[in-house]
Every structure is written in C-alpha cells, then in structure tokens.
Simulated assay, not measured.
Amino acid sequence: MNPRRKKRLGIVLSLLIGVGATVGLILYALSQNMDLFYTPTELVQGKPDGTKPEVGQRLRIGGMVVAGSVKRDPNSLMVSFQLKDVGPAVTVTYNGILPDLFREGQGIVAQGVLKNANTVEAFEVLAKHDEEYMPPEIAEAMQKNHQPLKYTQQQTQGTAQ
C-alpha cells in the first residue's frame, strides 16, 4: 500500500471513530434524560411487559388525587398526597407551590424520582385544566385496564349547572 492510500485510510478510520463516538454519546445523553410514564398500578405491579421502575429512576406518574389524602406541612411548602387509578395507591411528596387547579379527586401528572416501591418525590406537578380533560396517558392507561371512567348522574348534573 502506498503512503497516499495509508493517509486516506487513516483519515477515513479516524472520521468513522469520531462519528461513532459522537453518536454513542448522544444516545447515552438521551437515555439519561428520558422520563417514562407510569400509572400507580404499573408503578406497583409493573407494566404488562414485565418492566418495573428502579429506585432512583426519573419518571412521570399520572392518576387521581385520593380524597382526604392531602397532607401539608405547616412550617414549609412540603405536601404529600396519595395518587390512584384503578389499582393500588402511590404516595407522592412535593416541595413547592401546587398548581391552582390542584385539589382532591383531580387528575394530575407528577414528574419526579422513585424513592421506594410506592413513593415518588416529585419536582413538578401538573393539574388538568377543566372538568372534561384527562391527560392522554391516563386515558390510555384506563382504556388498557378496561375500566373507563363513568360519570354518575350527579356528576353530569353538577357540570351542567
């Protein structure tokens, strides 16, 4: 092989190694910033494919705030509440000001870190914006569990007034 071909081969190999390293670092960074969505049932029992989040993993969880479960610390902004869908409840702790639309019986999505098997420490809490809206992830999860939300006659009369 003559020196000119060796030089070209070296340049091509170094470019391929550089591009490969760049793509590898990008994929690693994307996997570190990915937040997976779970319902309270999926968080406790695992997803249908058998995957379960690990302690310390960032995630998003959505469900309905259990009535009577909101506990506020009088000396700080720390709030804890239970979140539930059709299965077991999960405890969410949050240190900050909750959205104006947050209340018991409300659908919310919280983003945070899994602290133990059924406790999430949230750094962001989002509340739904009207009576008819449900986050798409929660509606999809409810459909998968074959238990759609049914409005009682009282609830529909209350929203019509």
Rank of each mutant, 00 (worst) to 15 (best):
L25K: 10
L25N: 09
L25Q: 10
I26N: 09
L27G: 12
L27T: 13
Y28L: 14
Y28W: 15
Y28F: 14
A29W: 10
L30W: 07
S31W: 11
Q32D: 14
M34C: 07
L36P: 02
F37S: 01
Y38Q: 03
T39N: 01
P40G: 01
P40K: 00
T41F: 01
T41G: 05
E42A: 10
E42W: 03
E42V: 05
L43I: 03
L43Q: 02
L43Y: 01
L43T: 02
V44K: 02
V44N: 00
Q45T: 07
Q45D: 11
Q45A: 06
K47A: 05
P48V: 09
P48S: 11
D49N: 08
D49A: 09
D49C: 07
T51N: 10
T51K: 10
K52R: 12
K52W: 02
K52N: 06
P53F: 05
P53W: 03
V55D: 07
V55S: 07
G56S: 06
G56M: 09
R58A: 09
R58H: 08
L59V: 12
L59Y: 08
L59M: 14
R60P: 04
I61C: 06
I61W: 04
G63D: 00
G63M: 00
M64C: 08
V66A: 02
V66P: 01
A67P: 08
A67F: 06
S69M: 02
S69F: 01
V70R: 11
K71F: 09
K71M: 11
P74L: 08
P74E: 09
S76L: 14
S76M: 12
L77M: 13
L77S: 15
L77H: 15
L77T: 15
M78D: 13
M78V: 14
M78Q: 14
V79C: 12
V79W: 09
S80D: 13
F81P: 02
L83V: 04
L83Y: 04
K84P: 07
K84Q: 15
K84S: 10
K84I: 08
D85K: 00
V86F: 05
V86G: 06
V86E: 04
G87R: 00
P88F: 04
A89P: 01
V90D: 00
V90H: 01
T91N: 04
T91C: 04
T91I: 11
V92F: 02
N95H: 11
N95K: 13
G96R: 06
I97C: 05
L98N: 11
L98F: 11
L98I: 13
P99W: 12
P99N: 10
D100S: 14
L101G: 13
F102Q: 11
F102P: 08
F102V: 07
F102I: 05
R103H: 14
R103Y: 13
R103Q: 14
R103M: 14
E104Q: 15
G105N: 10
Q106L: 07
Q106P: 07
